[in-house]
Simulated assay, not measured.
Amino acid sequence: MTTPITNHSPVGLRIEGAVALVTGANRGLGRRFAQHLLDRGAARVYATARRPETVDLAGVTSLRLDVTDEEEVRSAAAAAGDVTLLVNNAGVTHFTDLVTADLAAVRAEMETNFWGTLSVVRAFAPVLASNGGGAILNVLSAQSWHAAPGNNGYHVGKAAQWALTNGVRLELAEQGTLVTGLHLGAVDTDFSASYSGPKGDPDVPVRAGLDGIEAGTAEVLSDDWSAHVKKSLAADPTHLYDAIRAGVI
């Protein structure tokens, strides 16, 4: 039996007055999301991390959350029962190739990037429903759509997270929850410290993602590279991968 798809889309969520929870908020993009949410008038920001004592941002409520730990996920959802905006930012890369890397490292990337995100979404979906629907912002990547030598485990995890985002968008539409995917290329945070190519300003995708939430946008392409890669999906993939092998990434 096919589940009927609603013919309406959830509306945007105003950041001012929202109650937000950000995963992986002790550094990098997560910390910036928490700061921007405060700056834009969020009523409360839960900043989560595996080690909450490492959250050093004034004005937030820190919570312990390892997204791969089911008990911690349930505890976070119970502690943050007033959340109206969930920002799934937590992610990892172990710079793995699929054929030659330690399989445990590849599995660990999937465990955080896909299974961890899904676990958090499942735990907070009822919370969002009870608070009027709210919104979810999943921080994805241009690598949701392309492989890259030395980072293919991350690509697979982000591709799965993109598919997850599309799936839960349909599943949660009936309860009025907006689900937005944010795609970005490399930005200048410690997450991409070992990457020697060009890096963008991390505040740009953060602003774009939150703007997308307010506008009710399903998918945000926050830079030219993400837009280029998305467009290339309709073309012969040879052209994209010739450019990637040539270092034009």
Rank of each mutant, 00 (worst) to 15 (best):
G167R: 10
A160W: 00
H183R: 08
D188H: 08
H155M: 03
N166A: 15
E174K: 08
N138C: 07
G150E: 03
G153C: 05
L184N: 08
E171R: 14
L172Y: 06
G150K: 12
T177C: 10
H146G: 00
K158R: 12
A159T: 15
A159M: 14
G150V: 07
N131V: 01
A186K: 10
S141P: 06
G167S: 13
L178P: 15
G132W: 03
G133D: 00
H183S: 13
V168P: 00
D190K: 14
S130P: 02
G133R: 00
A159H: 15
G157F: 12
G176C: 15
A173E: 01
V187H: 08
V139Y: 05
L178S: 11
H146A: 11
A173D: 01
G181V: 06
K158P: 00
G132Q: 02
V168T: 13
S141M: 12
N152R: 08
G157K: 07
W162L: 15
P149V: 09
A148Y: 09
T177E: 01
T177G: 07
E171Y: 10
A142Y: 11
F191N: 04
G150F: 11
L170F: 11
A159L: 14
G133H: 02
G153P: 04
H155K: 00
T180F: 02
Q161T: 03
N152E: 05
G153M: 06
S141D: 08
A135W: 03
Q175C: 13
F191E: 01
H183I: 03
S144H: 06
G167P: 14
A135D: 01
T177I: 06
R169T: 00
D188E: 13
V187Q: 07
L137G: 00
Y154P: 07
D190M: 09
L178K: 13
L184K: 12
G181I: 05
L140Y: 02
V168I: 15
H146F: 11
V168Y: 09
V187L: 05
A159K: 13
D190N: 15
H155Y: 13
E171M: 09
T189I: 10
G133Q: 01
N152S: 13
E174A: 15
T165N: 14
R169V: 02
N151R: 09
N166S: 12
W162K: 14
N152Q: 08
I136H: 03
A148E: 04
T189S: 07
S144I: 06
A147F: 15
G176V: 12
L164V: 07
H146L: 14
V179L: 08
T165C: 11
Y154N: 12
S130T: 03
L170S: 14
A142C: 10
G167N: 14
G167W: 10
A148M: 10
H146M: 14
V179Y: 04
N138P: 03
N151G: 08
N151H: 03
L137E: 00
I136M: 04
N131R: 08
Y154T: 10
G176S: 14
L170E: 13
V168C: 07
H155T: 10
L182M: 08
N151L: 05
V187S: 06
Q143S: 05
G167F: 11
L178D: 01
S144D: 06
A147Q: 12
A163W: 08
K158G: 04
R169F: 01
A186T: 10
G181T: 04
A142F: 07
H155A: 13
G134K: 00
A186Q: 13
L184M: 15
S144M: 05
